[in-house]
Design a protein around this nucleic acid. Structure first.
Lengths: 320, 320
DNA sequence: TGAAGTAATGTTAACGTTAACATTAAGTTG
DNA sequence: CAACTTAATGTTAACGTTAACATTACTTCA
């Protein structure tokens, strides 16, 4: 493996000139630069990352901090990671996962996700490197989605299609997004002068079965013509329930999903849903962090991504 | 940030003794070791990975080589990555993705996946570090699944349930696993003295729609009582087709899936499927590579994972 | 008791790069 | 063309660790 020393010897220059050709080529005379370049190519020179890292005190490694309990095979989470890793890799940053606050390996920065309430202060206290959080906090930069807006968009769309009695399946989860989606539902109804009817709201766990059962209940006990499901998985259950009661979708019953990660495209009919730009969020997390690493004076930044309404085939105009 | 030098000064020993306490504690007198340990704790010493890497010529970084074209948001792929990253991270290896054969950054090893036919020879020629492939090759160690066996298990199970006319949806894909699953189907039929009927075999693309349409065809044109689908997604389509013809699943029509990554659990009824241990395979890839890195003399190794039959609710005994 | 062996610790140099400062070469100006 | 400025290149030391060899301190046993 050729080193800068080898290159410098062959090219007949000093080692620092080689270094400059690599890092600050504008400071080297063109003829010298070309000569050195040629020798580098000829010898197949590859810079030694470790030596550089040692002297610049940079590792070009990022840590992904996530809670032990979290399910790393959750599609949402995995797609987030996919975005993070894409962006990091494209910038030649490597990374590893960790879930401890005390960790023996140095890194240039941290991307944190899925923190418990109150844990975010540790980001400030325990870490001495730049950090970006997926979520919201006062302590470090963050990136998040506006789930109130997402739910608002969906319910507004449903209302505009003429539906008045719109049910909702709310996730029984302590994560903030569960409440936010309900809040968006409330705001949309309010803004369109539709009265909130608590009977149309059902609490569910994250399962197809619950989506099925609670939609069945709603259809039997109320006059809803549409339902807004907190996740696409619940929407699959809702589809099954409607089918069982011989309701056509969307002609007899409209169903709105949320997530747009997987299921929305493979369901039948394809789901009208709110797409959370998970992959893009992952990339943004990484990008913000890299900016922060490479420019430590960068101002604190918060990014709120806007979810997108994807119109497909599970919602249509109400025909009375 | 305290260095070994600081520790050595405070502890009143030489720097190399500190190094020994860390790397080869058995070579240090107990009293010295304890004293040094205490100082390290007290100063919050963290080893500088880069300096170590420089002198040992190890980076503790692994590259994941995958083809540009591949869809990184495919659940199968993502779960594989999840396994890889889990194992690597637990061993304090960081990693990054790349898809070029020429790459400016050094690494200790490479995990390759989804190579084009004939590309595997480059693993030997282009890489000068240990490598493990997801797939099969003569050139480096590999880990793979036995899809012939998987399909064999499924079809055998279906036959044992009394079915004689078993359809199959075969993926129209150049990837070897497509053919292997068909091969398993053939072997199972042969082994149970059931004649192969080409009319029961349909070629499909990877889509729910194709699963639906071809199953509809099969049900209309043949007398099959069961179908083996090359993937769970196809099986979802098959379920829809059966429902449309008012067939109960599994009483009137049995459906076997393949993959066991996601869909099998959320479908209704839950799918009897062949579970590919993707996550475990990912972990194995990483584990083998780490072994190879840390013991370069390790013999070449091939690991063939055995897929597992997951019995759920989409297949039952044939009642004539 | 002291020679020989072993356990424990230390000294020096090296890994491949960059930073800071030093020098030399090449322009520019009056 | 001397004095001064700027461009180009070089020298030396440092980053924090480990490897190889060197020394010193203890044991053991004839």
């Amino acid at each position: 493996m050729a080193t800068m020393k080898d290159v410098s010897r062959v090219a007949g220059v000093s080692i620092i000139t080689v270094s400059r050709v690599i890092n600050t080529p504008e400071k080297v005379k063109e003829s010298t630069r070309i000569k050195v370049q040629e020798v580098m190519d000829q010898l197949g020179f590859q810079p030694n990352h470790n030596a550089k890292a040692l002297v610049t005190n940079k590792t070009r490694t990022v840590h992904l901090l996530y809670p032990k309990i979290s399910d790393t095979s959750d599609p949402f989470f995995m797609k987030l990671i996919a975005g993070v890793s894409k962006e990091l890799s494209e910038n030649y940053y490597s990374f590893l996962f960790r879930s401890d606050w005390d960790f023996p390996y140095k890194c240039d920065g941290v991307i944190a996700m899925g923190l418990e309430t109150g844990e975010d202060i540790l980001l400030k206290e325990k870490l001495n490197v730049p950090c970006v959080l997926f979520g919201k906090t006062d302590y470090v930069d963050w990136v998040n989605v506006d789930d109130v807006l997402g739910a608002y968009k969906m319910v507004t769309y449903i209302l505009k299609m003429g539906h008045k009695e719109v049910g909702m399946l709310v996730l029984n989860d302590k994560e903030p997004f569960a409440k936010e989606r309900l809040e968006g539902y409330f705001q949309a109804l309010k803004n369109h002068d539709v009265e909130i009817n608590p009977k149309l709201i059902r609490y569910v766990t994250f399962s197809e079965k619950d989506g099925y059962e609670k939609t069945l209940e709603l259809l039997n006990e109320t006059n809803i013509t549409a339902v807004f499901c907190s996740t696409d998985l619940l929407a699959l259950g809702a589809i099954r329930a409607a089918r069982e009661l011989n309701k056509r979708i969307p002609e007899d019953f409209s169903i709105g999903g949320y997530d747009g990660v997987w299921l929305d495209q493979i369901s039948d009919p394809q789901l009208t849903t709110i797409k959370t730009p998970v992959f893009e969020i992952g990339k943004a997390l990484a990008r913000k962090l890299i900016e922060k690493i490479e420019n430590p004076n960068k101002q604190k930044e918060k990014v709120l991504y806007e979810p997108e309404l994807i119109i497909r085939k599970s919602i249509c105009k109400l025909n009375k």
